[in-house]
Amino acid sequence: MAKVVAITSGKGGVGKTTTSAAVAAGLALRGHKTVVIDFDVGLRNLDLVMGCERRVVFDFINVINGDANLNQALIKDKRNDNLFIFPTSQTRDKDALKRDGVDRVLEELKQQFDYIICDSPAGIEHGAITALYFADAAIIVTNPEVSSVRDSDRIIGILASRSRRAERNEPPVELNLLLTRYDPGRVAKGEMLTVDDVLEILSIPLLGVIPESESVLRASNTGTPVTFDEDSPAGRAYLDAVARFLGEQREMRFVQPERRGFLKVLSAQLFLSGAPDQRIDCQGAAEDRAVA
């Protein structure tokens, strides 16, 4: 049974599109046929992040309006056969997202795909509501700072009250928290909220913590989902999150400040000898590559 997953946050700039691309690519790497849809009509970015901007002919709105069929609009990723991108229109606005049209397109996609990832626009207006309305699961993308947390809280409330599952009294949308742009060093200095702070306020299951990483910006600019970059801590954190989304147990990594030089080696040894509170990033550890 195909699953519709909304990537949402309320606040802008927290990493929804990066996450949509990374999670979609991660699911595809795990062998699931996945499509990622850009719901940010008029502010199209997903095609850039996925590196397919030069191949867009028809878009989501064309298909909603019946001007093109699904297979004309879907773009197959060149790096992974399981991954498809469904770009949106840059010339229209969110009003073009007719709910019954979106419903029809999603139903059609469900025939072909295992996972349908919906990259939501920021805000709580029509576009964002439409992106989450049909969701079976949601990944709430949150930065460790108060305004992002509050907006996420608002979005969780909307998922619980205004999604189709809520309206039909079906089991609620499955909620997952993804904490992005997490900088353990700044958290340690008290400049950012800790994982526990955020969890205490939002009280939904934690899917993963993505460390602030240069590789994310590099991935965006080169049109490569960060999960395709095995050497990137962010990429590995996303792969862990995808594994958890698929029901696996993984240790939380990247939540402690990174050690330098011999200290890093020392703490890595502590980790191997089983000290329970040493959840550190052991660079080069074989398990990191187990996912790919």
């Binding site: 809280d153 608002r154 009250s161």
Partner: peptide, 27 residues
């Protein structure tokens, strides 16, 4: 019994209100 999220308003008309979960800022 569910957390009361930011942006939510709950009115107990003519009676008491009991919440057995957290009430978020903005609720």
């Amino acid at each position: 019994t569910e957390p009361v999220r930011s942006g939510t308003q709950i009115y107990a008309r003519g009676t008491d209100l009991v919440v057995t979960a957290a009430v978020s800022a903005g609720a």
